[in-house]
Simulated assay, not measured.
Amino acid sequence: MAVSVKAFKSYDEQLDILTDRGMDVGDRDAAIAQLQRLNYYRLSGYWYPFRRLSNSGKRTNDFQSGTTLSDVIALYDFDGRLRTAAFDALVPVELALRAALGHALGEIDECAHLHPESLSTRASGQIYDRWVESYKQEIDRSKEEFVTHHKERYEGTLPVWVAVEVLDWGSLTYLFDFAPNAVQERVAGEYGLSAPQLRSWMKSLNVIRNTCAHHGRLFNRTHALRPKMPPSGKFPALDQVQAVTNRTFGQLTMIQHLRQARELPVSRMLGAVIRSYPHANRAVPIGRVGVLKDWDQSPLWTT
């Protein structure tokens, strides 16, 4: 008979499971304190690569020889630092995209975001209708002073260069997709990219941003979306990561390019975090992040 839900385990029982499977948990009181702070299930994603491989290539429940809880915690802490640095590096990129798109659309129509006739034919059907509904709900929920000002003085209508300030990255990506082709190419051109390339980058980096915001595992993620890249030779530093654009390091390199293209300094914090990788564990090499040999010699990572 199938069990409907896993049975509850005390912290001591959780440690017993780990030790029975071959993990050295060290001092039990300290180990219990870590489980209380971090949650057994959350940590399981970080000890997964420490589990033995069977002959068929599947992970078993037993850990590789020498696996320690301290190594798992070090990997967990590294991932936390990586998320913090990635989010920090993305903030000015997001703000610059908002500003560029809001200004370019405003030149066409002060309320281009609400006038599909001022946008491309992609601004139609249920997708656009749902976007507008979501946007209006965000305006209704907003407590920002600039939104209140426009409600009091302009009946709540925000011009597009103001409206972009209430959009999250996902909604901004949709607005970019709705924009006329000429606007897309103008904004993308500021980064040395084509419109389809920038659109794919925005979609990919939205996943990175959401992973950071929701405390997801980032360091060894293989991303489902592989962004479109410029032709080989246009940006040699991007050519170097062509093979790993679906890995975290490849996408962090894209963030560095977007910063540099807008004359923002590359993120030193990102580089410092990558240098802090816990190399002491041999089961999970830094290559799991997608990091390449001599990565810090790239002009996108040289600080």
Rank of each mutant, 00 (worst) to 15 (best):
A7H: 11
F8G: 05
F8C: 07
F8L: 10
K9G: 05
K9Q: 10
S10Y: 13
S10F: 12
S10C: 12
Y11K: 05
Q14D: 13
Q14E: 15
L15P: 05
L15A: 07
D16R: 01
D16T: 02
I17E: 13
L18S: 01
D20K: 07
R21I: 04
R21G: 02
G22E: 02
M23Y: 02
M23W: 00
D24L: 06
D24C: 05
V25C: 14
G26C: 04
G26Y: 07
G26M: 07
D27Y: 12
D27F: 13
D27A: 10
D29M: 09
D29Q: 12
A30S: 13
A30Y: 13
A31H: 01
I32W: 09
I32V: 13
I32M: 10
A33N: 05
A33V: 06
Q34G: 04
L35K: 06
L35F: 15
L35H: 08
Q36Y: 14
R37A: 14
R37I: 07
R37L: 14
N39V: 14
N39D: 15
N39T: 14
Y41M: 09
Y41K: 03
R42L: 15
R42A: 15
R42E: 15
R42S: 15
G45Q: 08
G45I: 05
Y46V: 05
W47H: 00
W47V: 01
Y48F: 09
Y48Q: 02
P49E: 05
F50Y: 06
R51N: 01
R52I: 04
R52F: 02
L53M: 07
S54F: 00
S54D: 01
S54C: 01
N55I: 03
S56A: 12
S56H: 09
S56V: 08
S56W: 09
S56M: 09
G57N: 08
G57F: 12
G57S: 09
R59F: 11
T60G: 12
N61E: 14
N61C: 11
N61P: 06
D62F: 11
D62L: 12
F63D: 00
Q64I: 06
Q64F: 05
Q64K: 03
Q64L: 08
S65Y: 11
S65R: 05
S65V: 08
S65Q: 08
G66F: 09
G66Y: 07
T68D: 06
T68P: 04
T68Y: 07
T68I: 06
L69W: 02
L69D: 01
L69E: 01
S70C: 12
D71S: 14
D71C: 13
D71H: 13
D71V: 10
V72Q: 04
I73C: 13
I73A: 10
A74H: 12
A74F: 14
A74T: 10
A74K: 07
A74G: 12
A74I: 11
L75N: 06
Y76K: 00
D77H: 06
F78H: 00
G80T: 08
G80Y: 13
G80C: 12
R81T: 05
R81I: 05
R81E: 10
L82R: 00
A85R: 07
A86H: 08
A86V: 13
A86E: 09
F87D: 10
F87V: 10
F87Y: 15
F87Q: 10
D88E: 15
D88K: 11
A89W: 02
A89V: 05
L90A: 09
L90D: 01
V91Q: 09
